[in-house]
Amino acid sequence: MEIKKTAIAGTLESSDVQIMLSAGTNGFEFELESDVAKQFGDQIKETISNVLGMYDIKDAKIKVVDKGALDLVIKARAIAAVQRALDIVDAPKWEVL
């Protein structure tokens, strides 16, 4: 699947994460801002990459500002961002959810 438009999901509030997705050409290009990037950066990226993978997205620019979100929050925000970026908010992909 190809990203149709830039989309954002999540907030900058404590325990949340803000994810901005836009079209890319070179795999997953991450920019991550997090207090715990050293400890959990790879895990955060992996969670988001998995979600993108479920939607069959191969290329994307992913800008993440993490405020200490738990894994399930990251997953939920990533799903919301993807649905918006693919313009399928009205027709969610149930098998992924």
């Binding site: 954002i8 907030t11 900058l12 509030e13 404590s14 803000q18 836009s22 405020k67």
Partner: peptide
Amino acid sequence: QSKGARFNKIISELESRLALLDRF
């Protein structure tokens, strides 16, 4: 609640509104 909490809330909200206007 904590230092910066309100600041982050304001910026979040402004960014969501920008997104609604298709400004990224």
